[in-house]
């Protein structure tokens, strides 16, 4: 594989491969964050996570059209508006779903799995009925496509940088909320001991609803960002869901740090293996590594120590 290339070429490939790995890491982290919050704090596995992402993507699609038609002047920056809209719409739907569906099923975790899976099918068909079965193309302002040439052979992709920056910001906000805000304190209390938290006057229902809404809202932002790199179609959410679960489960359900570490591990091994073998083989090898590590650490990479 490495024969015949000059040192300069190898150096630039190393740099670009490293960058590819970092992009993959950001993508994984961004898609897993919403799910991790919900799964970690509430023990609910949201099978409709991918569909909440696609809802965000469709909102971006709508925004791009509306902005182009009515206020073409701000088209250059419409993406930021789109992300806010995606967050609000997905988050609002998340709140509604929690209130209508999830809260009745807290005592039955397996049933939430089934219920959210059903929800994902309903949402997919709804997208299909509203936006049509075909893929929609989300247009991006030209400054978001293309790449910045660093040297002759090294180029940095702008949409990759954008996803990385976005992931950094969102993760920062979530970490701040979780460890510095009153809501975060309450969430952590509920995770440690739900009954005791209720006893000291924490409205656990409200915490649950907000958590679910926030998780879904972040999924919406992720979906919006992924219109830059992926497709927007009714069932595109299914493309992300497996990788998302992998990251969350591997990271350990209740730890933000675990999610970060797990996204890093999986993305780096995936991207490195992909370079030296091929796409399909890389996936197989990555899964084998994850399975192996999970056999050694069934709880995931990072475990929150809780007295049961």
């Amino acid at each position: 594989m490495l024969g015949g290339y000059s040192f300069g070429e190898l150096g630039s490939i190393l740099a670009m491969q490293g960058f590819a790995g970092l992009i993959l890491f950001s993508v994984f982290l961004l898609m897993a964050l919403g799910l991790a919050i919900i799964f970690g704090q509430m023990g609910v596995i949201n099978m409709a996570h991918g569909e909440f992402m696609i809802l965000g993507a469709y909102m971006t699609y709508l925004c791009s059209h509306l902005v182009q038609t009515y206020v073409p002047g701000i088209y250059v920056g419409y993406f930021f508006i789109a992300m806010v809209v995606a967050f609000i719409v997905s988050g609002a739907l998340g709140l509604a779903v929690e209130w209508l569906l999830i809260r009745h099923l807290y005592a039955r975790p397996l049933d939430t799995l089934l219920a959210t899976w059903g929800l994902s099918l309903i949402m997919q068909q709804a997208f299909r009925s509203i936006f049509g079965a075909r893929e929609v193309g989300v247009e991006l302002p030209t400054w978001m496509m293309g790449s910045l040439p660093v040297t002759d052979t090294i180029e940095v992709q702008i949409n990759g940088l954008f996803v990385m920056a976005l992931t950094l910001v969102i993760t920062g906000i979530v970490a701040f909320l979780m460890y510095r805000s009153r809501w975060g304190l309450q969430v952590r209390a509920v995770v440690s001991n739900r009954t005791m938290s209720e006893a000291v006057g924490i409205d656990t229902r409200r915490i649950d609803r907000l958590t679910f809404g926030l998780g879904c809202g972040i999924a919406g932002i992720a979906g919006s960002a992924f219109t830059m790199i992926g497709s927007t179609s009714p069932s595109a959410g299914q493309l992300y869901i497996v990788d998302t679960f992998l990251v969350v489960v591997f990271g350990g359900a209740q730890s933000l740090l675990g999610t970060v570490a797990s996204a890093l591990t999986i993305s780096q091994s995936q991207s490195t293996l992909e370079f030296f073998t091929s796409g399909s083989n890389a996936k197989v090898l990555t899964l084998l590594i994850v399975i192996g590590l999970l056999m050694l650490r069934p709880q995931g990479l990072f475990v929150l120590k809780v007295r049961r």
């Binding site: 299914q238 493309l239 991207s271 796409g279 399909s280 996936k283």
Partner: peptide, 13 residues
């Protein structure tokens, strides 16, 4: 090279 159906990351290739 082959990629799993639904693969969304092609930077390495």
């Amino acid at each position: 090279e082959y990629f799993p159906l639904g693969n969304t990351q092609f930077n390495s290739v």
